[in-house]
Amino acid sequence: MPFWTFFGLQKGKATTPWPRRDQATGQEGVFGMPRFEPERCAPECSECAAICPTTAITVQPGRNGKDRLAVDYGRCVVCQLCVEACPADAAHASFDWAFGVRDRTQLILSDDVAAIDESPKERQSQDGFRRSLHIRHVDAGSCNGCESELQALNNPFYNLHRLGIFFTPSPRFADLLLVTGPVTYAMHEPLRRAYEAMPAPRWVMAVGTCAVSGGVAGGGYACGNGLEGVLPVDVYLPGCPPNPAAIIEALLMFLGRIPQKVKGGRVVS
């Protein structure tokens, strides 16, 4: 149908220049992980911990005997209940969704970012894959939210191909196994087989809070707690679901093309 060709030409380029230049990510107004200022916490208050649906927030005894807020963003489902519950203005909604990290501990809120060691994994580079990365996706029991955003990566707005990153049908051609979902009992074996079918070097990325820690579905009679204890994970990206720009940032970070934004649970750059 020739009119489709004209239509396409007439429409022009729909793809965002981001992240090459400081351009629109397409995520205007989309909430990310909540920010915390524990120094503002009211004494003896644990409202946010009580309302958190995934125990991402807990109150733990600190070094000086005072209770202190502990936040594990790897468990956060971005529900904003803590922001609504906080009586002391210590929890704020934010647009910090670019939460991809190499080391699980970087998702845990820490008071002292400077003291955090860069893990050895962080210096390891994926040279040779920087502009040609092939991904095999496995849905290990997601709600389809993560799949919807992964499918969006190849729409004209994000156009993942332009960055030299491709989805491949066969694990035999894949460098990176991208896993979503809390890993159900029935998907455990197919997931393990897909990983074993991949040639070395091979890496694993946990996309979405379910794959990182189980999320709201984890546990129970049918689910595991994400990839914990199932496969070795090289990149963690919590979010419920992570938006397409967050997935792209995590992939580019993994390839060493942009720096990791999150250290000690805080956005540093």
């Binding site: 029991g141 029935a186 998907m187 709201v216 579905a217 129970g220």
Partner: peptide, 11 residues
């Protein structure tokens, strides 16, 4: 189907 059965109703 039901590879993705997560037991959501029980949750």
């Amino acid at each position: 189907l039901f590879f993705k059965h997560r037991g959501m109703e029980k949750r």
